[in-house]
């Protein structure tokens, strides 16, 4: 079926099956920051923002996303907050293999917009962003600075 998705502020027309996942649809649009990690909603790698909230694009359907606004890191290229958290991550060497990088950045970005300040809360919100390379602590150092939270 033909659908229209609003992705990074642009209307995109595409042809999908009812069970095409949002992940597949976004990759069809050339948004390669959206990546598949696990097939079971268990890793967070496929995170995108829907109406400013992080969701898993591997278990959302493209058809469900019609009428909502989807954001991927490609759409935040010029965003100040995004630039800052990306820079912080790079400065800590917390990017490593980078496969889960965009999904982490998006989730942190959404928390910044919600102005979440408690470190404990931030960590809890990020629990679904698994990373196998970094051991998380370098990410935490980068995120703490970005979110302006202390211990």
């Amino acid at each position: 079926m033909k659908i229209t998705l609003t992705v990074n502020g642009r209307k995109e027309n595409l042809e999908v099956e009812p069970s095409t996942t949002l992940l597949e649809a976004l990759r069809m649009l050339g948004l390669y920051s959206v990546r598949k990690g696990c097939d079971t909603a268990s890793c967070g790698v496929c995170t995108v923002l829907m109406d400013s909230k992080p969701i898993l694009s591997c278990c959302s359907l493209a058809v469900q996303a019609q009428g909502h606004s989807i954001t991927t890191v490609e759409g935040l290229e010029k965003d100040k907050d995004f630039e800052e958290i990306r820079k912080n991550l790079l400065l800590e060497g917390a990017d490593q293999c980078g496969y889960c990088g965009p999904s982490l950045l998006l989730t942190v970005y959404s928390l910044k917009k919600r102005n979440i300040k408690s470190l404990q809360e931030i960590q809890k919100y990020l629990v679904g962003n698994l990373c196998r390379c970094t051991g998380y602590h370098s990410q935490l150092r980068a995120i703490k600075e970005f979110m302006e939270v202390g211990e």
Partner: peptide
């Protein structure tokens, strides 16, 4: 505390 933030958003 359920699963992940991403999942709870959907």
């Amino acid at each position: 505390d359920i699963w992940s933030y991403q999942l709870r958003n959907a």
